[in-house]
Amino acid sequence: MDYTEKVYDHLKNPRNMGKIEDADGEGTVGSPVCGDVMKIYIKVKDNIIEDVKFETFGCGAAIATSSVLTELVKGKTIEDAEKITNKDVIAVLGGLPPVKMHCSVLAESGLKSAIADYKGKQDNDRKRQGG
């Protein structure tokens, strides 16, 4: 098995690692039993993802894909962020070993889950405001 230099780069210096305490959206995917858990936090202002952070328990590929994902997402509108797929993440990393492809799917679903959480909260706020 061989990781690209880019994977090692993100492993050594993960971008946007940590929590956002007052996040507008949060998504947790994976399971410790399967060997990876990923948590994505987003902070949204005027429909733009202003800040994003990740926490990951997982292998090198899981950490690198989380880190790349946060870089791709930052500054994007919700609509553009929703278009990001695992293929985009893999492209940035210059490929992943075949057995590790499933890790990149986790990053994509982590983001989708955080956005869904954000949208759900928005709906609730609107309902509350609508009285």
Partner: peptide, 14 residues
């Protein structure tokens, strides 16, 4: 606890 094996191995390798 709370750390995945391969991630530790890759860092050890570095």
């Amino acid at each position: 606890k709370a750390v995945e094996g391969e991630a530790m191995l890759l860092h050890l390798d570095l």
